[in-house]
Simulated scan of single mutants.
Amino acid sequence: MLAADLPDGAFDLVVAVHVGAFWRPPAAEFAVVRRVLAPGGRVLLVDQPLQPGQARAKADRVAGLAAPHRLAVTAVHTGDTPPRPSIAVELRA
């Protein structure tokens, strides 16, 4: 199924694991996510930072990329997941 075929507001939760397109510009995929997200829905982006201590910088970068699409970071979760720490950034409309 193509992104254009997804109905507007159809999803309560969108999860992306290790999808680099959400972590670096231009992050145009946020427009699709915002369109298909139901009112009150959540987005969860999961990744493993390359270096320990990168979680805050990665979350701030996502916040800046998502803001033009009316998505805001509501929580940042980190975990000790060898071989590198992991991060999950939660966003809401």
Score class of each variant (00 low, 15 high):
F30K: 03
V17C: 08
L71S: 00
A21W: 09
F22K: 00
G20N: 12
A38Q: 03
V62C: 06
F11G: 04
A21N: 10
R24M: 14
G40P: 01
A31Y: 04
R56M: 10
G64D: 09
R42K: 07
V15D: 03
V33H: 05
A75F: 01
D8S: 05
F22S: 08
T78Q: 13
Q51I: 08
T74H: 01
A72R: 15
G40C: 07
R61T: 14
G53M: 13
T74D: 11
G9E: 10
F22A: 02
P82T: 06
T78R: 12
R92E: 15
F11P: 05
V14A: 00
S86T: 08
A88M: 12
G64I: 11
A27P: 00
E29M: 07
V89A: 04
T78K: 05
L6S: 03
L2K: 10
L65E: 09
R70W: 08
L45N: 00
G64F: 08
L65S: 05
R24T: 15
H77R: 15
G79V: 11
G41M: 08
A63T: 08
A93Y: 03
A10Q: 12
P25Q: 13
A28K: 06
V15W: 11
V36N: 00
L91W: 08
A67M: 07
A28S: 14
G53Y: 12
A72T: 15
P25A: 15
A38E: 07
V73L: 10
L65Y: 11
V32Y: 07
G53F: 09
H18L: 13
G20T: 08
Q48P: 06
A75L: 10
P68L: 13
G40R: 02
P39M: 09
V36A: 01
Q54C: 03
E29G: 03
P52L: 02
P82Q: 09
A16T: 09
G79T: 10
D60Y: 00
R92S: 15
V62W: 03
G41H: 05
